[in-house]
Design a protein around this nucleic acid. Sequence first.
DNA 1: TCTGGGGTCCTAGGACCC
DNA 2: TCTGGGGTCCTAGGACCC
Length: 425
Amino acid sequence: MAVYALVDCNNFYVSCERAFNPALEGKPVIVMSNNDGCAVARSAEAKAIGVGMGEPAFKLRHLVDSHGLIMLSSNYALYGDMSERVMSVLATFSPGAEIYSIDECFLDLDGMPVDNLTAWSQQVRATVRRWTGIPVSVGIGTTKTLAKLANRLAKKSKKANGVLDLSRDARWIEAALKQTPVGDVWGIGRQYAALCGVNGIRTAFDLTLQPDGWIKKTMGAVGLRTVMELRGTPVHTLDTAPSDKHTTCCSRSFGASVTEFEQVHDAVMTFASRAAEKIRGEGLVSGAVQVFAYTDRFRPDQPQFSLNSMIRLSPPTSSTPHIIGAALKGLKSAWRDGYEYKKAGVIMLDLVRPEDIPRDLFSPPPESGARPTALMAAVDGINGKMGKGAVGFGLVPDDAPWKMRCSNRTPSFTTSWDDIPVVKA
DNA sequence: TCTGGGGTCCTAGGACCC
DNA sequence: TCTGGGGTCCTAGGACCC
């Protein structure tokens, strides 16, 4: 029988910040999205004073004075590094581990020589906490969806103390399903939750009682798989070797909206350059680049416009100048004056390993464009040694108006020599 | 003044072919 | 009079996830 654990870090970004700044313990703390736009992680104390997930930062400023809310800019270098540490600890507990997101990991517990999974899970929690400083919760179930559901309840219940094992007792599973609002099920988002509500389906348990035909019709094949998993039939297996990405994207909202072509041009050039670095880092080449830019959707009083353009890359490449050239060509062809642009981005499509490029009689040999050139290798090498942006193509001024706002970022404690904390005697 | 970024999968519909 | 149908490929859009 399949048994899965889902280990999920509590309030992960806030917990990372607390690991290096214990003064944040016990206080309402949030971490904001890029551009300091909205709350993406909240401490328990912040949730308690009513801070919602995704709530815009400007609506929260008053809580700084009234409740001592601490609002931090996001520090992805720190979170990425802390995530690797947590995952490497978890890997010591089970040979089968799937890193599902920056703060979640599925473990395969099938055939583990453990008779008390709750006690074992408490040991996992204690070890991760001691070795990394990050608090985690553990949910266990016979399907991934049930493990997710167990994890959510493990976090909510004081009695559970961070661990809930739903793998043994059918009555517990039923009780858990009845306690879970249908919208909190993994795979049931806003739209499907609303559809369920209209049809009188309130809990996960209600959902398991619906006929397959109705589920398939209203929530598609994906929805049906979710319900099968809720009923205890495993559909999703552990994926320990994630396959290569098919697309990758580099996009940002601008710190301030811009109207001039030159500004959007510079932003697109920067994003294209980063996107190229990213795919080289994963050993991939791209067969097409898509560029987009659009106006501020939160300003209905302003004229709205969205531009979008795709340029094929033949042969597929990861070379920065080729990719920048294509992205700018796309931007030029779709550009329209007279709008306040608020966001732009570059998407790399049709990613493949160079050796897997489909070839025909007329394809040039792969060496001529598919592999990173010596120049690209040198650029990446220098940036690896000297720091990001030491050398590059089309570098733009730091004070460009479209650049991100980020007023309250903590140091990169674990990934930058200059930022390593110093212990004072 | 101020609302994130990066992914996946599925489905419907159109173009095209025989 | 009678006006096919099945397959494939591609794209756009919509749902979901963290």
